[in-house]
Simulated assay, not measured.
Amino acid sequence: MVEEDPKLIFTRWLEEHSSSVIQVARAYTLTSEECQDLAQEILLQAWRSLPKFEGRASAATWFYRVALHTAMNWHRKDQPRRVNQKPLLEIHDPASNGTDGVDQVQQRETIEQLYSAIHQLPKTDAAIVLLYLDELSYREMADVLGISESNVGVRLIRAKKALSTLLNGESDES
């Protein structure tokens, strides 16, 4: 790693890539509290992994890789506890004050449906969808996941079909 203060590097990368951390955490959790817990775990793992960063991948790719691996491990380890646990009350952030309140509610419901469907996908398909939603190129997705670009394409098509089925019933749209 470059001879620069690790705290400065981490802070800069966090500013640039925090949205990907939240997006990954949200896709692997059911409640906003769990999302925050997982996001904290991802940041902790990223901080611990920073000395091992060799610069072979971009900071964005490295952050995604840490976030996805941490989320998948967290999900696997936490699954037994969550099977029988349901939240007593789901707390949602209030909509911001604006004239498009109905549109914001509809958009939030659509996003919730999307994340609910993503939760039902296999872990690798969920990871591909998250990377796609964050507009990464096939090359960047391949780097994050450690697979070929053509494999990314195949998996993405399969994941889109599965999401379409989950969101729209037995639709063939992608």
Score class of each variant (00 low, 15 high):
F10D: 02
W13Y: 03
W13R: 04
S18Y: 06
S19K: 07
R26Y: 00
T29E: 01
E33Q: 09
E34S: 06
Q36L: 08
L38F: 07
A39W: 00
I42M: 01
A46D: 03
R48E: 11
F53V: 08
R56A: 15
Y64L: 12
A67S: 15
L68H: 05
T70F: 03
M72N: 00
H75G: 06
R76D: 04
K77N: 12
V83Y: 00
V83D: 04
L89E: 13
E90D: 10
E90V: 12
H92L: 15
H92W: 11
H92K: 15
H92Y: 12
D93K: 10
D93Y: 11
P94R: 11
N97L: 14
T99Q: 14
T99H: 12
Q104L: 10
V105C: 04
Q107T: 13
E109I: 06
I111L: 13
E112T: 04
L114D: 09
S116F: 04
A117K: 01
H119T: 15
K123G: 03
D125V: 05
I128N: 03
A142F: 00
D143E: 15
G146T: 07
E149L: 06
V152H: 02
V152K: 05
G153F: 03
V154A: 14
R158F: 04
K160F: 02
S164Q: 00
E170N: 14
S171Y: 01
E173A: 15
S174M: 15
